[in-house]
Simulated scan of single mutants.
Amino acid sequence: GDITDALYDIGFRVFSLSNNHSYDKGAAGIDASREHWAAMPDDVVSMGFYNLETYDDYVYQTVNGITFGYLSYTEHTNGLPTPSSATYGVVYLSDLDIIEQQIAAMRPNCDVLVVSCHWGVEGSHDVADSQRQMAQWLADHDVDLIIGTHPHVTQTAEWLTGAEGHTSFVAYSLGNFLNAQSSPDNMIGAVLDITFQKTTQSDGSSAVEMQDPKLHCVISQYEDGWKNIREYPYSAYTDELGAAHGNFTLTREYIESVLYGSIDEQFVALD
Results as ranks from 00 to 15, higher is better:
Ile3Ser: 14
Ile3Tyr: 14
Thr4Ile: 15
Tyr8Ala: 03
Ile10Phe: 08
Arg13Ser: 08
Arg13Phe: 01
Arg13Ile: 11
Val14Tyr: 09
Ser18Cys: 13
Asn19Asp: 15
Tyr23Ser: 05
Asp24Thr: 14
Ala27Lys: 12
Gly29Trp: 04
Gly29Asn: 07
Asp31Tyr: 07
Ala32His: 12
Ala38Ser: 15
Ala39Ser: 15
Asp42Gly: 07
Asp43Trp: 05
Val45Asp: 11
Gly48His: 00
Phe49Asn: 06
Phe49Pro: 05
Glu53Trp: 01
Asp57Val: 04
Tyr60Lys: 14
Val63Ala: 07
Asn64Trp: 05
Asn64Leu: 08
Gly65Cys: 03
Ile66Glu: 04
Phe68Ser: 01
Phe68Ile: 02
Gly69Ser: 02
Gly69Ile: 02
Gly69Arg: 00
Leu71His: 00
Ser72His: 02
Tyr73His: 05
Tyr73Gln: 05
Tyr73Thr: 07
Glu75Lys: 08
His76Leu: 13
Thr77Tyr: 00
Ser85Gly: 06
Thr87Ala: 10
Tyr88Met: 11
Gly89Leu: 03
Val91Glu: 04
Asp95Thr: 02
Asp97Pro: 03
Ile98Phe: 00
Ile103Tyr: 02
Ile103Arg: 01
Ala105Thr: 09
Ala105Asn: 11
Met106Gly: 09
Met106Pro: 06
Asn109Phe: 14
Cys110Glu: 12
His118Ala: 04
Trp119Gly: 07
His125Val: 09
Asp129Lys: 12
Asp129Phe: 07
Arg132Gly: 08
Gln133Asn: 13
Ala135Trp: 02
Leu138Phe: 06
Gly148Arg: 00
Val153Thr: 01
Thr154Gln: 11
Gln155Ser: 05
Leu160Gln: 09
Gly162Ile: 09
Val170His: 01
Ala171Pro: 03
Tyr172Trp: 03
Leu174Ile: 11
Gly175Met: 00
Leu178Ser: 03
Asn186Gln: 09
Met187Val: 03
Asp193His: 14
Thr195Asp: 15
Phe196Ser: 02
Phe196Pro: 00
Lys198Thr: 03
Thr199Met: 04
Thr200Phe: 04
Gln201Phe: 15
Asp203Tyr: 00
Gly204Trp: 02
Ser205Asn: 13
Ser205Glu: 14
Asp212Trp: 05
Ile219Met: 02
Ser220Phe: 03
Gly225Ile: 10
Lys227Gly: 12
Ile229Gly: 06
Arg230Met: 12
Tyr234Arg: 06
Thr238Pro: 06
Thr238Gln: 08
Thr238Met: 09
Glu240Asn: 08
Ala244Gln: 15
Phe248Val: 08
Thr249Tyr: 12
Ser257Trp: 03
Leu259Cys: 13
Leu259Asn: 08
Ile263Ala: 04
